[in-house]
């Protein structure tokens, strides 16, 4: 694999391989501490995303490598008007691999055409964020021990959330998956996602506005943020927002082996009284995110 721009660049086999590698790292971290010795990761964050950048940098440091880079357009060459192509040509002379975040869609693809070293898309606007999807996949596999035969509920903003669309895309490739989409009518899953991934692959799904009625049937509940700015008026937002907040009380109707996920940061869509419930996996998800990025860096550098 040369670059990772879109989650669909990876075959199911490659995803399985990455997940297995990440699990091996989790079980034998010491065996990996020196794997990337003298290798450099450049984190080029043309827009800040502390969470994602720290995950990439920790991953490289835990592999014994070094990290260089910048965060925020003001601190970068872009502020002086340099093109993405020229920036990565320069960085390609210093580093062995790039993780790039950019506000414009397609910027990491442009980078991959000119860098001469592997490029990982660490998020390009609302477009692609493949390492978030890999994180979600590792979390599902770690918590459930499998990728097949489960009912996945996605709740909140299903219209604009690219993370949600990518997860549906990725999970649609496994057998025995059922989806339940829980959202206000205003934030329903776009029809092209339904047509392209679900109808085309004959995947059963259900759409509902009611979290409580959907909860008992779920193996996984993936929560997302319902943002105020997505609503035309304040009234609708106030009326709807509480219906899509997960609380300990609501969880009482859910299965004991439910897994609750969230890409973070959360605002109030999961109340803090859920945090110490065994079913809450969203902070574990952060931890898994580092391990899957370690597996990815190794794979892209061709290190066993």
């Amino acid at each position: 694999m040369d670059n990772l721009i879109d989650i669909l660049d990876l075959s199911v086999e490659e995803i399985d391989e990455l997940v297995e590698k990440a699990k091996d790292i989790i079980n034998n971290p010491d065996a990996y501490r020196e794997k990337c010795r003298y290798k450099k990761l450049a984190t080029l964050f043309f827009e800040p995303s502390t969470r994602t950048r720290l995950s990439f940098e920790s991953a490289m440091l835990d592999l014994g490598g070094y990290v260089i880079g910048f965060s925020g357009a003001n601190n970068s060459s872009a502020a002086k008007g340099e093109s993405v192509a020229d920036t990565v040509r320069t960085v390609g002379c210093y580093a062995d691999i790039i993780a790039m975040r950019h506000p414009k869609e397609g910027a990491p693809l442009v980078a991959s055409m000119h860098a001469g070293i592997p490029v990982i898309n660490a998020g390009d606007g609302g477009h692609n964020h493949p390492t978030q999807t890999l994180t979600d996949l590792l979390t599902i596999n770690m918590e459930k021990g499998r990728f097949t035969d489960m009912t996945i509920g996605l709740c909140g903003d299903l219209k604009f959330g690219r993370t949600v669309h990518s997860l549906i895309e990725a999970m649609s490739r496994y057998a025995g998956i059922r989806f339940v989409f829980i959202s206000p009518k205003e934030l329903k899953l776009p029809s092209y996602v339904v047509d392209d991934y679900l109808v085309k692959n004959n995947i059963p799904y259900e759409e509902t506005t009611d979290l409580m009625s959907a909860l008992p049937g779920l193996d996984i509940l993936y929560m997302t943020r319902v943002q105020r700015e997505r609503f035309f008026n304040e009234e609708d937002y106030i009326r709807l927002k509480d219906s899509y907040i997960l609380t300990r009380e609501k969880l009482s109707v859910a299965r004991p082996d439910l897994t609750v996920m969230h890409p973070l940061p959360r605002v109030n869509e999961i109340s803090v009284d859920v945090d110490d419930d065994d079913r809450a996996a969203y902070f574990k998800q952060v931890r898994y995110g580092k391990f899957i990025r370690m597996a990815l860096i190794l794979k892209m550098l061709g290190i066993e």
């Binding site: 093109s83 950019h102 414009k104 869609e105 397609g106 910027a107 693809l109 442009v110 390009d124």
Partner: peptide
Amino acid sequence: KNPRCITSTEQEL
């Protein structure tokens, strides 16, 4: 024509 596309800011692409 997508204003969020990288081609909107990098003229020579």
